[in-house]
Amino acid sequence: MNRRELARALSNPESIVASERPKNPWCVLGVTGAPGVGKSCLVDQIVKGWLAGGEKVAILAVDPSSPISGGALLGDRMRMSSVDAGENVFFRSIATRNLPGGVPSHLNKMVDLLIEQGWTKVIIETVGAGQSEIRVVAVADRILLVEGPARGDVIQAEKAGILELADIVAVNKCDLEGADRVAEEIRLSLNFSADEPAPVILCSAETGEGIEDLLETINTLSCAKGPTIAKARERLLAAHQELMLNHPNFTDAVKGLSDGRYTVEEALQRLR
């Protein structure tokens, strides 16, 4: 499969035929975090590091489609200078609308295809803004949560449920004031709830400070128990949701619920 054929195949994830990727070594890094914390710039640095280490890196950047127009503005690659040249890097922007009902399972197939085609590392990048984004990133073998200073307190991250999924936390923009304090708060929060808390790394995609440390930590990261369970949970919920959305009675259940024919209980019965 040449590059063009690969790009084409990724446009039709439901018709992808690829064998399941091997579990070892791990190859899929999920990167998530709130808008504006510097995910794309940090991914750019990670990609550069991996390329220098001889990896073939593919990036899948997932962004939500507008629920009103169905369109999407996909601008993640403009922040990544590393991705537009060289044979060993592949970047694809994905709008969620292309993957109705089954973003995680479609993504899974896309990753399998990329690995089968000789890409050695895949990065899934998505804004960590809600439950559906968490599901997207739970496809990954390892999850990097990106945080930054001046974002309010760490309760925000805890509330979103993303912190418990993270195998590693990067506090980006450490050249700005307040980053130390954010890192400390996250460490405290992680220590409070986990036996093997995820490492918290201070770094700056802008100045390059801490990037080597981050790369080293990512490359040698073993998967802690907490995130493994949290990921499995999200994957299961995603699969269940997909089953429901694809159920032949789904449209009827939604309609019946909205026009008062069914109660929620009855609608659920229709989907059993």
């Binding site: 489609s65 507008s66 127009s69 169905g70 369109g71 999407a72 503005l73 996909l74 601008g75 690659r77 403009m78 922040r79 537009d84 922007s93 709008a95 609308r97 292309n98």
Partner: peptide, 14 residues
């Protein structure tokens, strides 16, 4: 932006 609002998927290169 206009093409997005018309329902298309727009990739901006920078």
């Amino acid at each position: 932006r206009a093409l997005r609002d018309a329902g298309h998927e727009v990739i901006y290169t920078g």
